[in-house]
Amino acid sequence: MKTILLDALTIAGKDLKGELRSKQTIGMMLVFSALVIIIFSFAFDPTSNTVKAIIPGLVWVITIFAGILGLNRSFVSELENHCLTGLRTAPIDPSSIYLGKVLANFSLVTSVQLISIPVLFLLFGYRFTGSYLWFCCIVICGTIGFIIVGTFLAALAANAKNSEMLLPVLLLPLISPLLIAGVQATRIVLESLEITDAISWLKLMIAYDFLFLAVCFLLFEYIMEES
């Protein structure tokens, strides 16, 4: 397991180094998040009470759709010079490729969230009165689950002709339970309602994360195999 983790860190480090140099994917994700925030700030009057109702949804819209842009790139970039084949011939467990990609994608999406969520609150003039700790827990749990499933499906879709279109079609139905739980829990925390209700949703998200991590971890080597 230690070797798998070390190899995963090597792969994630390589991805992040490449991304830091080109800033191609993160730039695209940030531009998309900014556009969503600006469009919604025009569509809804930031001074009205509807803002409170749409903010939890917006947090997840930004996370999911900006995240899909990054997920699409994570395996497509490995197809250049058949680098994925290079990884498959290396003496590493295929699960470490998956884990490395999960780590890199999670870092990218979290970076986008760290910038876009404060900007969202700022532009909508939203005063945060809830618990920062619970809010962070919910966002992290939801993001992990999304990345776990998204990375697996991105690998599955990478060899398809229209991988950019295929990924959202496969991913969105599969993450709908996580998304519903995420939006509900975020709403409860942001509206400073009874935290025990949010904990129930959080438990659901944690269970989802563990279940899909185990499934994707075990199945990844089969989707890496050629026929």
């Binding site: 390589k14 490449g18 140099r21 080109s22 250049e80 010079n81 058949h82 680098c83 084949t85 290079g86 990884l87 011939t89």
Partner: peptide, 9 residues
């Protein structure tokens, strides 16, 4: 192999 398996960036 036929391809280099190297990262252009």
């Amino acid at each position: 192999g036929h391809e280099s398996y190297l990262y252009s960036s």
